[in-house]
Design a protein around this nucleic acid. Structure first.
Length: 860
RNA sequence: GGGCGCUUAGCUCAGUUGGUAGAGCAUCUCGUUUACACCGAGAGGGUCGGGAGUUCGAGUCUCUCAGCGCCCACCA
């Protein structure tokens, strides 16, 4: 704790221990690292809190597969040994991801690394559970859950993926008791569930069935009698208008069943095989059949009974487990622990409404609200072994005692009462929900809790807004009486170049480690920043990465240039002391860039920050400044030479500083180099330096104007030369006609530079008429005349001038359309009118000069 | 069914209060200059998905149509 600095906390979304670095990590961690480094350079006491998540199901699956290969299983091992095995695996392989993060250059506070199943974090989990239980915000309930018949566990609604499957709609005729040859037809996509039907529902207003309400149906196969009930749920428009009700195997039917107090017959076991349910009267032949086998069996028997009305092929959505994909989940009636999310969500919604927590971009708040306002009870128990075992104990009568430890539970139950612990574990997201404070040592009253809660910023992907962000909000507010973070920056997901989600099955996965091998970690990071515009997705592009690798090389070469030309870094260099315009200019441009970059980062506009740095470094510094100053460095004016060398070295170092959050490896290396050291000591590290803030005095707008004119002149000459196919090697003459005093002065000052960069042999400012066979162009008030009598192609020059004149004409016309419009003059702001008027004058001036040049050409 | 978003140069994308459309890559031309060919100089290329509206003025605001994508819910 560096107590003299303002704290800045950013909790790292803990990657799964099972994971290895993928592009999504590379993106999110890069963005977090850039921000962490940036804030550190602002002098903040930054805590970027790292750690890993135990990832219940995922990890258990990994180890179970391992066991399977060994011919063993978790059941053979038993719970205790199995857990031992998982821990062993975690010790060996669990830090793969964190070491990969180091390769990426991520700099969280590694010494504070936490794991969601660390002892102190477990303590927090138990405390939260017990308190919520005592507040009646956690309770046990028998409801339908999505059941995974392979893993034998409840699965979160959020982890259910609806997959479109080609199936059938079977229409069955159910006979009505006491009415010979009268049937009521129902339709179903899951015939086997009919064994558990406990009613048939029709709409109360449905004329077709009104008279049947209250009658009994004799359920085929089982012979059970079930009532025909009236319920709004039955939609007369759908199917036959009559619907079978299977409360224990369908979420809607469950609600209907509750309304009508229907029996709930659970006819499947944990493996989703048909099981004998009390009172269900399922024939012996069905018991133990797999659900899909039973389906065929039921259909066959119904058909044999002559009760099959028809079969229609139909595509319908079937719930699958998001992770394993292959497993069809089953609505299953079980006892589970629930958390009263409805209650907890209220203040969490309010916190975002009042702006205590802000989403960036703001549009994600809608997503958050949408879910939070319709939130369902959160099923927090899982029938797994790997995770936080629920701190609840039962006596022989099934009475439950919830306490943080077994001793306390025993106290509650009374001495001598034999207690058995609830075997279930908590949903992984339960412990992740506590991450912003559990990692700081809560429930202990630590310095860190006081200092770093709430966090300033959370950076994460939109895919876990519900899973994680929302839950942290609920738990944070409930237990800490304050939001867990003030800002949530939601970034997109990384997709491939075609916008497809990366997946192993599609084979379009880009491995960030391969990218690092190929282009370097710095290039990967810079690319991520450059691609991270606040849109929906980040499409990975190898060509972009290649471009930024080139950028790194460019910077490296610039540094080499500095070294070769005596441009060293002087620690006490003061840019405001510069005298030469070029040096004053580059410092001004640098200052402007620095502001752009920090403004962009403060607004999470990483791409803007990246492009400002790219442009300044490559365009302004390398392409112009270094080229401009070569003559100065090789020149005879010792004072100017020294100042230029010092400025060059210093600006390069400032670039390294600004670029350090993005490209930490290269910039540190070059910085050390600039200091003349093989390897820099800690005290020299850029990441410990302050972000440059420039005095306004350093910005010299006159210098900027002046140099911009020179740039424009050179560009103009180069463009014409190229257009007219003047050989690059040819040194030609130039005459400037009509030059005003200011620019004449500038011309003299930069004569050498202009000659060098525009490949000119002689330059003169004179009012003489353009010699025959010249090519001409215009810069502001002056004509640029390049006499090339022997080389120039008159016809080509004529074409070129005409084209330029056309352009000027079009421009004038466009502006006239505005300026001759009374409504525009009346309603547009004065400054816009002014602007356009000036633009017109300029364009007319240009046109006049070009036309004159054309006339001269024709005359010659 | 409800919600969100996207459609801008050949490709991938920027474009923050409405005021003459930008970048990288790709393409084409030319390369003198010992920091750099992972380079330098120059050029071409867009009626901003279609239509309507608001406005003096729309890539930018509103409506509408079309195509694409995502999320949630449902599917007897």
């Amino acid at each position: 704790v560096k107590s003299n600095k303002a704290p800045y906390c950013i909790p790292m979304p803990p990657p799964n221990v099972t994971g290895s670095l993928h592009m999504g990590h590379a993106l999110t961690m890069t963005l977090q690292d850039i921000l962490s480094r940036f804030e550190r350079m602002q002098g903040r006491d930054v805590l970027w809190q790292p750690g890993t998540d135990h990832a219940g199901i995922a990890t258990q699956l990994v180890v179970e597969r391992l066991l399977e290969k060994e011919g063993s299983s978790r059941h053979k091992l038993g719970r205790e040994n199995f857990l031992k095995r998982v821990w062993e695996w975690k010790e060996q392989s669990g830090n793969t991801i964190t070491s990969q993060l180091r390769r990426l250059g991520a700099t969280p506070d590694w010494e504070r690394e936490r794991f969601t199943m660390d002892p102190d974090l477990n303590k927090g989990v138990n405390k939260v559970f017990v308190q919520l239980y005592n507040e009646k915000l956690i309770y046990k309930d028998k409801r339908l859950v999505n059941w995974d018949p392979k893993m034998h566990t409840a699965v979160s609604d959020l982890e259910v993926e609806q997959v479109e499957i080609k199936g059938n709609m079977w229409h069955f005729k159910y006979p009505i008791k006491g009415m010979a040859d009268t049937f009521i037809t129902i339709a179903t996509t899951r015939p086997e569930t009919m064994l558990g039907d406990t009613a048939v529902a029709v709409h109360p207003e449905d004329e077709r069935y009104k008279k049947l309400i209250g009658k009994m149906v004799v359920l085929p196969i089982t012979g059970r009698e079930i009532p025909i009930i009236a319920d709004d749920y039955a939609d007369p428009e759908k199917g036959s208008g009559a619907v079978k009700i299977t409360p224990a195997h369908d979420f809607n039917d469950f609600e209907v069943g509750k309304r009508h107090k229907l029996p709930m017959l659970s006819i499947l076991d944990k493996d989703a095989k048909i099981a004998a349910a009390e009172g269900a009267q399922i024939p012996e032949a069905y018991i133990g059949l797999d659900r899909f086998v039973a389906r065929k069996q039921v259909v066959a028997e119904i058909e044999a009974l002559g009760l099959l009305d028809k079969i229609e092929p139909q595509v319908h959505a079937v719930p699958h487990d998001e992770k394993s994909k292959s497993v069809v989940l089953e609505p299953f009636l079980t006892d589970q622990w629930y958390c009263d999310a409805v209650t907890l969500a209220k203040p969490a919604i309010e916190a975002v409404e009042t702006g205590k927590t802000q989403f960036i971009p703001k549009t994600w708040e809608k997503t958050y609200f949408e879910w939070m306002r319709n939130i369902q009870p959160w099923c927090i128990s899982r029938q797994l072994w790997w995770g936080h075992q629920i701190p609840a104990w039962y006596d022989d009568n099934g009475k439950v005692f919830v306490a943080e430890t077994e001793e306390e539970a025993q106290k509650l139950a009374g001495a001598g009462v034999k207690l058995t612990r609830d075997p279930d574990v908590l949903d992984t997201w339960f412990s992740s929900a506590l991450w912003p404070f559990s990692t700081l040592g809560w429930p202990e009253k630590t310095e860190e809790v006081k200092r770093y809660y709430p966090a300033e910023t959370l950076i994460t992907g939109f895919d876990i807004i519900f899973f994680w962000v929302a839950r942290m909000m609920m738990m944070g507010i409930h237990f800490m009486k304050d939001v867990p973070f003030k800002k949530v920056y939601i970034h997109a997901l990384v997709r491939d170049e075609k916008g497809q989600k990366m997946s192993k099955t599609k084979g379009n996965v880009v491995d960030p480690l391969d990218v690092i091998d190929q282009y370097g970690a710095d290039a990967l990071r810079f690319t991520m920043a450059a691609l991270a515009a606040q849109g929906r997705d980040v499409k990975w592009s190898n060509s972009r990465a290649e471009g930024y690798r080139n950028f790194a090389t460019k910077l490296w070469n610039a540094s080499r240039f500095c070294e070769m030309n005596g441009c060293a870094l002087k620690i006490d260099f003061k840019p405001q002391g510069n005298k030469h315009t070029l040096n004053r200019w580059i410092v001004s441009e640098l200052a402007a860039t620095s502001v752009k970059v920090s403004d962009a980062l403060k607004a999470f506009r990483y791409n803007d920050a990246a492009s400002a740095l790219y442009q300044f470094t490559w365009g302004t510094f390398c392409d112009w400044y270094i080229e401009f100053t070569k003559p100065l460095i090789n020149g005879s004016d010792a004072a100017v030479k020294q100042e230029t060398q010092d400025t060059t070295g210093w600006v390069l170092d400032q670039i390294l500083l600004l670029l350090n959050p993005f490209m930490p490896y290269l910039t540190e290396e070059l910085h050390a180099h600039l200091l003349g050291k093989e390897k820099a000591g800690k005290e020299d590290w850029l990441q410990t330096k302050m972000w440059p803030v420039f005095d306004k005095a350093v910005i010299d707008s006159k210098a900027q104007e002046e140099v911009n004119w020179v740039v424009k002149l050179i560009s103009e000459i180069r463009s014409v030369r190229s257009d007219m196919n003047v050989p690059a090697a040819a040194q030609i003459k130039m005459q400037l006609k009509g030059l005003n005093a200011t620019n004449q002065q500038r011309l003299n000052t930069y004569l050498d530079i202009i000659k060098r960069l525009a490949r000119l042999s002689e330059v003169e400012a004179s009012e003489n008429a353009a010699p025959k066979g010249s090519i001409q162009t215009v810069i502001d008030e002056a004509n640029i005349i390049l006499p090339l009598a022997d080389v120039v192609d008159i016809a080509q020059e004529r074409e070129r001038l005409k084209k330029e004149i056309d352009k000027a004409n079009a421009n004038i016309e466009r502006i006239n359309k505005m300026l001759l419009n009374q409504a525009f003059l009346a309603k547009a702001p004065e400054e816009v009118v002014q602007e356009q008027t000036e633009a017109r004058t300029e364009a007319e001036n240009l046109k006049a000069k070009l036309s004159q040049a054309l006339k001269q050409l024709e005359a010659a």
